[in-house]
Amino acid sequence: MKKGILLSILCLGVSCSAPCPTTSNLLPMYGKQPKCAEQLAADQEFLDLSDKQYATRRIASAHYAQVGWGLFYDKQLDAAMKRFNQAWLLDSTNAEPYWGFANILGMKQQFRSSISLFRKYLTMNPTQAKAWAGLGTSYGQLFFQTKKAAFLESSIIATKQCVKLDPTYGEGYAQLAAGYAYYMQKDSAKKYLAIADKLNPVLVHPEARQMIRN
């Protein structure tokens, strides 16, 4: 008997479904993968429980995003991803999960994917300076990987928006100093180095500092 015919017979009267994707909760938005019946049932159980525990799903989503940030800063990236996914499942209009996803992917050196999520977050919350800095960092890392000047230019544009929104954010000026050092624009690099040093003299990487001074 052919394998395909045997499979058809075995599926008669029985629900034959694809295996459950085991890593989907470690991907942003569950990897946008179709879920198996077991996972859909677990999602519904989670949503029903949240509906009992919180006044609204928006409030529940904010709570799970906050838990996700705590895990992220504790460097528990997989656990953080799971909580951000739950926050997204509860309320996909909550901007915080997208920022969380972007940061986690950046930490995992998945810079191209992180950029799209930073941009998704920033369309929803364009005044968050640190998110602009994160976007600039991902573009900067792509520049180091590819040596394509367009990525460095995008990094500088994003980071300038960061310090425009928060002129006290020293890491942004340090990032600009390094960016202009690689851009071979020493005057701009020295300008941002001076501002960064005034805010915190240890922020600029020694290699970038040496490039600026040479």
Rank of each mutant, 00 (worst) to 15 (best):
I212Y: 02
Q161L: 05
K75V: 04
L7R: 11
D166I: 01
P34E: 06
V67Y: 02
Y121K: 04
I195L: 10
E96N: 09
D51I: 05
S116V: 11
K82S: 10
S24C: 04
M107R: 15
L142Y: 01
M29H: 05
S92Y: 14
A60K: 02
W69R: 10
D43A: 08
L47A: 01
D43V: 10
A131W: 00
K35C: 03
Y139T: 00
A129C: 08
L49P: 00
L142H: 06
G140R: 01
G134V: 09
L12T: 08
H63A: 12
T56D: 01
F84H: 05
T93N: 09
L203T: 10
K190L: 14
M29I: 14
D51H: 12
C162D: 12
Q185T: 08
L27F: 10
Q161H: 13
A133K: 07
K190E: 15
G172T: 03
A129Q: 04
N25D: 15
T127S: 09
A95L: 05
L26A: 10
S138D: 15
S138V: 01
C20H: 07
R57H: 08
L10V: 10
A65N: 04
Y30I: 05
K75M: 09
R213V: 15
K191H: 11
F118M: 00
L105V: 00
G179P: 04
S188Y: 07
V14L: 15
K147S: 13
D78M: 03
N85S: 07
A150C: 03
K198M: 12
S17F: 05
P28Y: 02
P167S: 11
L122H: 08
A181L: 05
S138A: 15
D166S: 09
D43P: 05
D43H: 07
A133F: 14
S155Y: 03
K198H: 10
Y192V: 02
L7H: 01
T23S: 13
K3P: 01
A65I: 01
S116W: 04
V14W: 14
L165K: 07
P97Y: 03
P201I: 04
V163I: 13
Q86K: 14
M107Y: 11
I59L: 15
A149L: 12
L89M: 14
Y183E: 08
L105F: 05
R83W: 02
K164N: 08
R112D: 07
R119F: 05
N103S: 12
K52P: 00
I9S: 06
K2C: 10
P167R: 04
L165E: 11
S24P: 00
T137C: 04
L7Q: 11
I115S: 00
V163S: 02
